[in-house]
Simulated assay, not measured.
Amino acid sequence: MSTPVMSELTHQGIHHLGWDNNHSFPRRLEGKVAIVTGGAGGIGEATVRLFTKHGAKVVIADVEDSLGTTLANSLSPSVTFVHCDVSIEEEIENLINSTISRYGRLDILFNNAGVLGNQSKHKSILNFDADEFDLIMRVNVKGVALGMKHAARVMVPRRTGCIISTASVAAVMGGLGPHAYTASKHAIVGLTKNAACELGRYGIRVNCISPFGVATSMLVNAWRIKGLDEEEEEDSMDIRVPCEEEVVKTEEFVRSLANLMGPTLRPKDIAEAALYLASDESKYVSGHNLVVDGGVTTSRNCVGL
């Protein structure tokens, strides 16, 4: 039998944990402000939805204006959209400044925006494409570094904050992606470790996530064009929303490569990893690369290099 004092303590405990209005689950990001780059689709969209569910005010940053605006409008008023090309410093700076202007703080930056590059041509180092390399590094590496720079700029004075970036299993071992993409993802892990080393003194945690293949529209579209000639390839790139059959086939292929049999890797699984790293549950985790791959990086060469 509970006493009034015990009931009050229980109420305070629930409030402290940030439980939702129905008390069905604790809202792990209650009151926090988060930015998700590449947030209009795929892993980014799943993360925006999950962060919002857990009480965060979320800013979606993406170059896909229509998708980003539609997603923001479909969620709560605490979700907004800002156009941002992460490879352009002025746009990253505007993203951070507008977030501070609107919400007064930034607790979480998820550097998720990235490009795959061509997954079928130029696989061999003998066919290295310098222009494609520059594009991939500009988005995947420069974009992450700029995000870290401007997030740290507003987090350092408050001596708290969390920066997460999307790397890849291609950053863990060779043979899991084309050369340019692999180089860019290795660089993200290096930036994560260096930034964690520097920013730890200010109470800022810096981590990254390395997923295996997730059947997002970007990945399905990239893998669809393997084996096509140049004219067919250009036409296929206009198809942005894969059909269910293509998604299922991609998921089956990824599942066949994993050591962990049974589960299927989906965007929400990576969002859950981001939620852990963004929440206070990981308060002593920094400089870490959280690999979500069903054990594939223990032994596999998946792309036939």
Rank of each mutant, 00 (worst) to 15 (best):
I204W: 02
D293W: 06
E132V: 09
K226P: 01
L67W: 15
A46H: 14
G287T: 07
A170T: 00
L265I: 14
M261E: 04
D235V: 04
V48L: 05
L95G: 10
N301T: 14
D235E: 11
A278R: 08
D269I: 00
V58R: 03
G13D: 14
D131C: 05
V169P: 10
S78G: 09
T47N: 09
N73V: 07
Y202S: 09
V115P: 08
D20A: 12
A187K: 11
F110L: 13
V303M: 12
E90P: 11
I100K: 11
S101W: 08
A40P: 11
A113N: 04
N112T: 02
I92D: 03
M148C: 10
D229K: 01
K32S: 14
E245G: 09
L9K: 06
Y103D: 10
E30W: 01
V285S: 07
I60E: 06
H179P: 12
C162T: 14
R153C: 04
D238Q: 01
E90Y: 12
F25S: 10
M261S: 02
R28L: 15
E246L: 07
N221K: 06
S282A: 09
M155V: 00
E30G: 02
V169R: 11
K226T: 07
G295E: 09
E234F: 08
I225R: 03
N22F: 12
L305V: 02
V58C: 06
V63D: 08
G190D: 13
G38D: 11
S98V: 10
A40K: 10
V115K: 09
V86W: 14
N73C: 07
D134C: 04
G203P: 03
L126V: 04
N94E: 12
A56M: 05
I239H: 05
L116R: 05
V154E: 02
K53Y: 04
A258L: 01
E246G: 01
V220T: 09
V296T: 08
E234A: 07
S101F: 12
I164K: 00
R255Q: 13
G161H: 12
F133M: 04
A273F: 00
Y202V: 00
H122V: 02
V189Y: 07
A274L: 05
D129S: 00
S87H: 09
G227H: 05
T3K: 11
F212A: 10
M261N: 04
T3N: 10
A167W: 09
V139A: 05
F253Y: 09
I125V: 08
A145T: 01
R205Y: 00
V206S: 03
K57E: 10
K249V: 03
N118C: 00
T52K: 00
L75T: 05
G304N: 14
D107S: 01
N112E: 04
N118K: 01
A72H: 09
K193P: 02
S66V: 13
V291Y: 03
S98R: 13
T99I: 10
G41I: 08
H83Y: 15
G117D: 00
G13H: 12
V241L: 03
E232N: 04
A273T: 06
G18R: 09
T10E: 15
T166K: 11
R205H: 02
I35A: 11
A271W: 03
